[in-house]
């Protein structure tokens, strides 16, 4: 495939690739050959919406939102795909898409209640301080009945912020958890800061997610956020993989620190995957990072009222 040299061209190519792999039932899998799953479906849909110039794409996103709603369980949770009742970590993604397409308010509120109910397990280290973080703070886990980690906590906080629920005590505790999990050198990883006193290394994707969540929750002035921004600004210069670059740029943009050459970085990242099989997550994140900022995409709707399309 010929490499696109500018923003407009690669965005159109990415959108076309997503459209061409949209499947029945509506949605995308993690790979072309895997079953439809919630996270890639939501990120691909949000990517289309963030760069929207066609009602057809809005229709695709709405169809995806409807399909995800149909898979919601009575307790409000959403599995990672149709065949799973657990884990539930994809539930916040459903909330984001419903919010972005301004539909399914009732389902979104039910999902939020579930998110607020089903949190991570704290544990008491006693005097044996093996890990450096506060293990009693509660955020969100990847899998029920396990500990809280950075990325699922950020997912939950972004969804809560999108529905204006950040004043809930559990959301506030989630914010405290993210700040507690910030690495001494700046940035975030999956969620261990130190083990036996030795600091671990940050990674771009969880850092971008944490910055997005903290910014949407009004904590962008915190020193951990400032250090995270500095880490990403330094690191993203050498990153071309869509997942890390995408969340990294989304996080920096949410904090008002988008690099001037972001478009160039995204073009390079698209070129990097241009000849590879379509990944809905990769394309969705690149489009999301290129288009309308996430706070505008999902952060401006009111909680009340079912304005289903």
């Amino acid at each position: 495939m010929r490499e696109p040299s500018n923003r407009k061209v690669w965005i159109e190519q990415a959108r076309a690739r997503l459209r061409s792999t949209d499947r029945s039932p509506a949605g995308w899998g993690y790979r072309c050959d895997t079953k439809v799953a919630v996270e890639p479906t939501v990120l691909a849909s949000l990517g289309l919406l963030a760069t929207l110039d066609d009602e057809l794409d809005r229709h695709i996103a709405v169809e995806s939102a409807n399909r995800i709603a149909s898979s919601q369980r009575f307790d409000g949770s959403i599995g990672v795909d149709d065949d799973s009742t657990s884990p539930e970590w994809a539930t916040p993604f459903a909330v984001l898409l419903w919010t972005a397409v301004r539909s399914h308010s009732r389902e979104a509120e039910l999902a939020l209640d579930r998110i607020l109910y089903r949190r991570g397990d704290p544990f008491d280290q006693g005097n044996d301080h093996v890990v450096g973080h506060n293990t009693k703070l509660v955020g969100w886990p990847w899998v029920e009945k396990t500990h809280s980690w950075v990325e699922p906590t950020a997912h939950a906080l972004i969804a809560l912020a999108a529905r204006r629920r950040i004043d809930h005590p559990h959301a506030q505790e989630g914010v405290r958890l993210l700040l507690d999990r910030a690495l001494p050198s700046g940035g975030w990883n999956y969620g261990n800061t130190t083990v036996y006193g030795r600091p671990l290394r940050p990674q771009p994707e969880p850092t971008g997610l944490a910055l997005s969540a903290l910014s949407l929750c009004g904590a962008s002035a915190n020193s951990a956020v400032v250090a995270g921004i500095a880490y990403l600004q330094q690191t993203l210069k050498d990153i071309r993989t869509p997942r890390s670059l995408g969340w990294g740029l989304i996080g920096l943009t949410a904090c008002g620190a988008r690099p001037q050459n972001a478009d160039e970085m995204l073009t390079q990242a698209y070129n990097y995957i241009a000849d590879q099989p379509t990944s809905a997550i990769d394309l969705g994140l690149l489009l999301l990072a290129a288009g309308e900022p996430i706070e505008r995409l999902v952060g401006t709707v009111e909680r009340q009222g079912d304005d289903r399309l």
Partner: peptide
């Protein structure tokens, strides 16, 4: 791997400063 004495790794000054920073 040798586990260090607890005092050496519990709450470094940097970690404490981050934890004590208000939101």
């Amino acid at each position: 791997f040798k586990k260090p004495p607890t005092a050496e790794f519990h709450d470094s000054p940097r970690t404490r400063s981050l934890k004590e920073t208000p939101i």
